[in-house]
Write a protein that binds this DNA or RNA. Structure first.
Lengths: 228, 228
DNA sequence: TCGATTAAGTCAAACGTTTGTTTTATACCT
DNA sequence: AGGTATAAAACAAACGTTTGACTTAATCGA
């Protein structure tokens, strides 16, 4: 246990501070969070922030990168699997995968390991973009959108980069976003303090159905039989 | 102009401060906004906040009430008209009104008079509810949700207070919310700095179609003819 | 292998600035 | 006179940052 104590001690402190910072910045605004509370929660010293991250702003950006990498790790496998399957080009399968992806996206937002800290960070960056937004966009939003757009394009026989494709892909993620971004409102509608496990299950199933049905927009007057 | 100068002067200062506070709290976090900047923008003195609102927290709550009243004023007419028509109980008409309401909701979020300031305020209260959330919920979220739930219940022949009804009503607002809450992301997807007028028009039309189509969830295998 | 040197990391203390709030004083109109 | 409103100044508290001393581990020359 004595080998390379100082070699890893710095990295450990860095990680503890990042974890504390993610929790703090996820639940409170940037200016509401004092670096004193962060280092206190991390069991470190105030000067550690200036030393390891160059200051509070540097810590914030490092936290964004830390968050992006952790979230990306939990999604990349699904996105890659879907991208591989999309190459086939079967619309029916793309519709199924779209429902599954939206459902899984909702689950990550509602019960994922980072579902407590990440949304607060992300939604703040949407309203008040800083340099952290670029990190989140490249590592999270863009890959997610590209995958969604690919599925929508396949399912609706549209060009991948068509404006309609992008709008639909974004809109289809809306319901899942709403259950997390407006969680407090939804919970008050349900007269409930938190989402229960069965709530999440019902939401997931409902979103899968709504997604599949919404994909048929502008086609409701078409013949009922399911053809490619 | 000389009558009751001091009687209205106080109210004027109050209103100017509220307007400046709404703009400030809508674009920046609570702790990022200094009361000195607010009174500077409002052309008032620092002590005016303590005098008129009892402090910064009192100003924030007053701003929430001010925002809620202004937003409510722009929606109540539509909600009342819809509520009156819903009493008829025609599912086909309810579906039409649902699409129209979602479309109008999106327009308010994207181009309304308060679309600059309000969303930032609202989304922050969703992530970090304070006493201001209760004000917003009672005056905005609950009436909107009740109307949506009523339309969904009528369109799908469900009880008004059924859990499914509430979930669907919330989910159907999701796409509109996504185009504003994740506006920065969507704009980057479109390689555009701001939504153009035609963007908003396309989004409105698309959301109306998606809403109508999504309402047919779990029924796609049913006979195509439209029956009550 | 020993002693000196360098670098990394942590720590308590103090820096100057800014925060929201309060106090004190001054006009203004009834 | 008396309440209303604004103004300037001062308040303690908290902010992010910096400083210099201290410990520890690794490196180097002899």
């Amino acid at each position: 246990m004595m080998v390379s104590q100082s070699l890893e001690q710095g990295a450990d402190t860095r990680r503890r501070i990042l974890q504390a910072a993610l929790s703090a910045f996820g639940h409170n605004d940037y200016d509401s969070v004092g670096i004193r509370r962060i280092v206190e929660a991390a069991g470190a010293n105030i000067a550690a922030i200036s030393y390891h991250f160059g200051g509070k702003k540097g810590l914030y950006l490092a936290t964004a990168a830390y968050l992006a990498e952790n979230l990306q790790a939990g999604m990349q496998q699904h996105l890659e699997r879907i991208a591989a399957a999309t190459a086939g080009g079967d619309p029916a399968q793309c519709r199924r995968m779209l429902s599954e992806l939206v459902s899984r996206f909702a689950e990550n937002l509602l019960t994922g390991a980072l579902s407590d800290d990440a949304p607060g960070f992300i939604f703040r960056e949407q309203n008040h973009p800083t340099d952290a937004f670029d990190i989140l966009y490249e590592k999270l939003f863009r890959p997610m959108h590209e995958t969604m757009a690919g599925l929508v394009a396949c399912a609706r026989s549209l060009p991948c980069d068509a404006e309609e494709t992008r709008l639909v892909a974004h809109a289809l993620l809306g319901p899942a976003i709403a259950f997390r971004a407006a969680r407090t409102t939804m919970l008050r509608h349900l007269s409930r303090p938190v989402y229960t496990a069965s709530d999440v299950a019902r939401i997931k199933d409902l979103l899968a159905l709504l997604t599949a049905s919404a994909l048929d927009y502008e086609r409701r007057d078409a013949p009922p039989g399911e053809q490619p």
